[in-house]
Write a protein that binds this DNA or RNA. Structure first.
Length: 271
DNA sequence: CCCGATTCCTGTAGGC
DNA sequence: TGCCTACAGGAATCGG
């Protein structure tokens, strides 16, 4: 599924084909995404040229003319640039026909994704305005986590997955970062020390940066082949490894549920 | 404000 | 082998 690294990989992969291109036509075959695709989307976009493609959290922001298309891949969405128009397959919900002969195609089997047009400053959009800092940006560090967590009784894993705290930490990377930093995911966020939040912030950055490198693999078959295989599975230390031996101490990896999400950890290495 | 539960959806893993 | 159910997950939103 698209985590922050894959969204960033998508952005880098499609940006060169979009910048400067004019949107000549829009085909919407399925409007029922996370929020309905408006009937006016084609009119809003057509005739406008793409000026930028940026990422904020897991949102992609395509600015064209007087507005911005806010896109989210949800859990199963993908964006591809096709070299030439091709008949749509299952779950190919939206196409943007570009003036350079290419086509941007949005595919999303589970339809948790989104495509919203806004003429306002996208950063002020209700979906974006309360988002926390980018984990790879300068404002994110251990002190930020520590300050926000004082008095909070929710589990530290739930806390770092809250987009108002820090964006882009999905279920997989939350478990992985907590393992790397030796923190029990069930521990109350307010009971993690300032020092340990420093380690955790570093771990979050490291695990996401490593995953962006792996995203480069996906980049290669971007315009051509199929989607993302499980190429990061082999680097995972705890996620999906319940009952397997901890790579550090040999003890069993345990699974529990926090915030309705499966959570993996090593009882011996994480306190 | 804070926090846990619910909701959207469909491909697929697992059980029988 | 095949069917059926449970589960997976991002994140908004609801309810307490």
């Amino acid at each position: 599924m698209p985590e922050l690294p894959e969204v960033e990989t998508t952005r880098r992969g499609i940006e060169p084909w979009l910048l400067g291109a004019r949107v000549d036509a829009v085909a919407v075959r399925e409007r029922r995404l996370r929020w309905p695709v408006t009937a006016r989307l084609a009119r809003d976009l057509s005739g406008r040229s793409v000026e930028s493609l940026e990422r904020r959290a897991k949102y992609l922001l395509m600015t064209a003319g007087d507005g911005t298309l806010i896109m989210h891949l949800g859990m199963s969405g993908s964006l591809r640039v096709l070299e030439a128009p091709r008949p749509p397959g299952p779950h190919d919900h939206v196409d943007l026909v570009l003036s350079n002969g290419r086509m941007l195609r949005f595919n999303d089997p589970r339809r948790f994704g989104a495509m919203l047009w806004t003429r306002r400053d996208p950063m002020r959009h209700p979906l974006l305005r309360h988002l926390g800092p980018e984990p790879l940006g300068a404002e994110f560090d251990g002190d930020h986590l520590w300050r926000l967590s004082r008095g909070r009784r929710a589990a530290v894993k739930t806390f770092i997955m809250d987009g108002r705290v820090v964006v882009g930490v999905g279920n997989i990377y939350a478990s992985e970062a907590l393992f790397r930093s030796g923190i029990d995911p069930r521990r109350a966020a307010g009971r993690v020390s300032r020092r340990r939040y420093g380690v955790l912030a570093d771990s979050i950055r490291e695990v996401l940066a490593a995953a962006i490198k792996r995203g480069g693999t996906t980049l290669q078959d971007f315009t051509g082949g199929d989607g993302q295989p499980g190429y990061f599975a082999q680097e995972l230390n705890v996620y999906g490894r319940e009952g397997d031996a901890c790579r550090s101490c040999g003890g069993p990896i345990r699974q529990t549920v926090l915030g309705q999400r499966s959570t993996f950890f090593c009882q011996r290495c994480q306190r």
